[in-house]
């Protein structure tokens, strides 16, 4: 509760938003606010200006192209994604998103806000990395698109720089996906998670074991190969109150196997 003083801007367009963000190094985009406002309550962050992206229809909406490619506006809420007929083209998206936090948070929290927070305990970073999502970032000099490996740079750090905005996320067609997690209680704070996607070859992304998702490409999708890939990654996860590094490393392997199995079974 009780934020530091902050200014508030409500731009009428993405262009306006970029303008405000460019004018002030201390400006920060406010998406759903389900992370940022809490960080501000703790006074762990105190931007000078909040640039409210709510209401910018340009950043909303989910489109499904003929080739199965999904384009998700950054300001799409979790609830909107869960309800979207288009998003069902990649079923894992709705399934995982439905386990994030709770109804209220899903009603207001956004897909873009989630990935921009780059919280290592969140589900979307590894999922996006596994399914090959690409991120469109707009700035004064136009748009650029990056993959997950370039997008997630560190804890609470992404490729979205000062004066820039994430506008949309593009997800290729696919359905052989899997996801597994161990959380505190049912769908609580995540201890470890793993996403897998099979598209000819298997790609696994591990969460909670490093600042950014750890992406692995096992030689094959069978259990032994998956285990070998995880062991070969020489994980060095953090220890905290919920898990020792050893336990996290162990969970990463078990969850990778489970996610891979689910991906294969689809």
């Amino acid at each position: 509760m009780l934020l530091r003083e902050v200014e508030y801007a409500k731009p009428a367009s993405v262009a306006d938003a970029l303008g405000v963000l460019a004018q002030n190094d201390g400006a920060r985009a406010l998406a759903g606010g389900q992370t940022l406002i809490n960080v501000m309550k703790a006074r762990a962050a105190s931007p000078d200006v909040l640039v409210d992206l709510n209401g910018l229809d340009e950043l909303k909406g989910i489109e499904l192209a003929g080739d199965g490619t999904l384009t998700i506006g950054a300001m799409t809420t979790y609830t909107e994604l869960m309800a979207s007929a288009e998003a069902k083209a990649r079923p894992i998206l709705g399934e995982v998103v439905s386990t994030i936090a709770d109804v209220q948070v899903r009603n207001r929290g956004t897909i873009g806000g989630n990935v921009c927070a780059s919280d290592p305990t969140n589900h979307l970073p590894p999922l996006m990395a596994a399914i090959g999502a690409r991120f469109t970032i707009a700035g004064a000099n136009g748009e650029r698109e990056v993959g997950a490996d370039e997008f997630f740079l560190g804890v609470y750090m992404t490729a979205v720089g000062v004066g820039e905005l994430l506008t949309k996320i593009t997800i290729p067609a696919g359905k052989h996906d899997g996801f597994a997690a161990v959380t505190l209680g049912v769908d609580g704070t995540c201890i470890a998670n793993a996403a897998a996607s099979l598209d000819g070859s298997l790609r696994i992304a591990l969460g909670c074991v490093d600042a950014v998702p750890v992406v692995l490409e096992p030689a094959s999708a069978d259990e032994a190969a998956v285990r070998e890939a995880v062991r070969g990654a020489a994980l060095d996860p953090p220890s905290d109150v919920h898990a020792t590094a050893e336990y996290r490393t162990h969970l990463a392997e078990v969850l990778a196997v489970r996610a891979a199995r689910q991906a294969q079974e689809r």
Partner: peptide, 13 residues
Amino acid sequence: GTLVKSCMMLAVQ
């Protein structure tokens, strides 16, 4: 019409 937690929303919003 949407259920929210009002501690994660600014009054100005």
